[in-house]
C-alpha cells in the first residue's frame, strides 16, 4: 500500500519516492475505500482517515482478509 503526496515532480529517469508505504501480507487485490470522517478517533487518536480493503488469498496457505487501517498524517 503506497501513499503519495500530490505535487510530486520527479522525472521518468529519477522518480521521487512515495511518502509512505507498507507491505500488506499476500498483497491487495481489491479497490481501496478511504473514509476521512474521523470524529471517532481510532486506536491512537491521531488518525485522519480509515482505509478499507481486502487481500488476496494464497491457496492452501493464507486466507484472504478484509481489513480496516487508520492513517495518520
Amino acid at each position: 500500500m503506497n501513499r503519495a503526496v500530490s505535487g510530486f515532480a520527479g522525472t521518468d529517469a529519477s522518480p521521487l519516492s512515495v511518502a509512505s508505504f507498507f507491505a500488506a501480507p499476500t498483497g491487495v487485490a481489491s479497490g481501496i475505500v478511504i473514509d476521512n470522517r474521523t470524529n471517532f478517533q481510532i486506536t491512537t487518536g491521531l488518525s485522519t482517515a480509515n482505509i478499507y480493503y481486502g487481500t488476496k488469498g494464497v491457496a492452501g496457505t493464507t486466507q484472504s482478509r478484509i481489513v480496516q487501517l487508520n492513517q495518520e498524517f
Partner: peptide
Amino acid sequence: VSNGPHLDWFLNTGGYGSVAGYPA
C-alpha cells in the same frame, strides 16, 4: 504525529478466495 498506517482490525474470510471487489 507518526505519519504511518496502523492496523485497526481484520477478519479472515475463512477461505483462500480473494477479496477482489471494492468494499461498499
